[in-house]
Computed example of a mutant assay.
Amino acid sequence: MDQAERIDAVSSFLLQSPPGEINDVLNDVRNIIADDALLQEGILPSLREYNIAQFTTVDVPETNHQSIISEAARIVAEESEERFLDPRSKTTFVFDHLTLEASKPEPYELDTPHEEARVSLEKAALTYLASHFLDGTVSVFAPSELQEAFTLQIVANKYNPTNFWSGRWRSEYLVNLSDKRVKGKILLNVHYYEQGNVQLETTHNISFNIPAAAASAAPATAASKIIALIEDEESRYQVSLNETYREMGERTFKGLRRALPLTRQKIDWDKVTGYKLGAELSSSKGVFGSS
């Protein structure tokens, strides 16, 4: 396998990294390349793809909050340097996909006639985030000047390597006040790896209408009603997940194995060695015991 094939293999591993474990994966595959300079150069495109898809969060320079790295946040600048937008502070910055750090902040004027509505939606989303997510980040973008439409993104991470699990919640919604419609999805990834390796990766699509009265209300009122509808959808999904896991534990997993061995008696695992010794003695007696 040549170096190009090795880089492709490493990149594939990185794109499948569980939440919060990409550095662990990177350290594990360094020996495959054995050339850190070549490795960094070769995997940068995959790291960029991973960070954008996974809604990687970053501390925004000169602020006390984080922003989301995503396709909605990407600014197509005239120069070759790719920049990302934090709409909350109206700042753009350069993001290092290897070190996960932001630099070179610059002010950015959000030239859109719907900025008041965007800010109202952002404030309502931050209130929702504080109530339901222990460690989360939210960003609200206004990608369209022609329509009163906004992209709302939420990400929350929970890493617990001491207990061998990690998880990431991502949700993204296109809130279109012009069409009175919200379309979005929830993406959930959980990794549990104590004496094994189990991953859950699921996507749940959401779509609902915005009541006409809410869509035409004052920006703050409309934003509160829309976030309340999103909260209802996400709460229902959370409840459905809990019910699914309970059913899996009580029915599905039990159906994959025998409740009892063929003897219909539970095995006392502390006596397994004794069982084996007894079987060997019985076997020996059968062969040599008679005279």
Results as ranks from 00 to 15, higher is better:
65 H>Y: 07
122 E>G: 07
103 S>R: 14
80 S>N: 09
117 A>H: 11
129 L>K: 15
87 P>H: 06
74 R>G: 00
60 V>I: 14
63 T>S: 11
86 D>P: 13
108 Y>A: 09
61 P>S: 14
58 V>R: 11
62 E>Q: 13
84 F>L: 05
59 D>L: 10
70 S>C: 10
136 G>P: 13
87 P>E: 06
84 F>Q: 00
53 A>N: 06
99 T>R: 15
86 D>W: 15
133 F>Y: 14
138 V>P: 05
121 L>R: 05
131 S>G: 06
102 A>L: 09
57 T>S: 09
53 A>W: 04
126 L>C: 01
87 P>T: 04
80 S>I: 05
91 T>I: 09
121 L>V: 01
105 P>N: 01
64 N>Y: 13
107 P>S: 09
58 V>W: 04
57 T>I: 02
106 E>W: 09
116 E>S: 11
104 K>M: 09
86 D>S: 14
71 E>F: 11
142 A>L: 02
78 E>F: 07
97 H>Q: 07
83 R>F: 06
132 H>Q: 10
64 N>C: 00
59 D>W: 09
55 F>A: 02
80 S>G: 06
97 H>N: 11
74 R>F: 01
131 S>D: 14
126 L>P: 02
132 H>V: 03
88 R>E: 05
90 K>W: 02
131 S>C: 07
59 D>I: 05
58 V>N: 04
55 F>N: 04
83 R>H: 11
92 T>Y: 03
72 A>T: 03
109 E>R: 12
141 F>N: 08
94 V>P: 03
97 H>P: 03
133 F>A: 02
98 L>M: 05
76 V>E: 11
72 A>K: 08
123 K>F: 02
112 T>S: 10
68 I>A: 10
125 A>D: 10
75 I>Y: 02
144 S>C: 05
134 L>H: 14
115 E>H: 12
114 H>F: 15
61 P>N: 13
60 V>A: 12
57 T>C: 05
129 L>E: 12
135 D>S: 15
62 E>R: 15
67 S>A: 14
63 T>V: 01
124 A>V: 00
58 V>C: 04
141 F>K: 09
103 S>Y: 06
140 V>D: 09
66 Q>S: 10
134 L>S: 14
120 S>A: 15
78 E>P: 06
119 V>L: 06
81 E>D: 11
62 E>C: 07
114 H>D: 07
75 I>F: 04
62 E>Y: 13
79 E>Q: 10
123 K>S: 12
140 V>N: 08
105 P>S: 01
97 H>A: 01
135 D>N: 15
112 T>M: 03
110 L>V: 09
60 V>H: 13
114 H>W: 14
127 T>A: 11
78 E>C: 01
79 E>T: 12
110 L>H: 10
70 S>D: 01
111 D>H: 09
129 L>Y: 11
126 L>T: 08
91 T>W: 04
93 F>Q: 04
97 H>F: 03
125 A>P: 02
73 A>M: 04
55 F>H: 12
138 V>T: 08
88 R>G: 01
66 Q>M: 06
117 A>C: 13
70 S>L: 08
136 G>S: 08
86 D>Y: 12
124 A>M: 01
105 P>V: 00
56 T>P: 00
91 T>H: 06
58 V>Q: 04
129 L>T: 06
139 S>F: 00
113 P>E: 13
71 E>P: 00
117 A>M: 13
92 T>N: 09
132 H>K: 12
117 A>W: 13
71 E>R: 10
120 S>T: 05
136 G>N: 13
71 E>M: 11
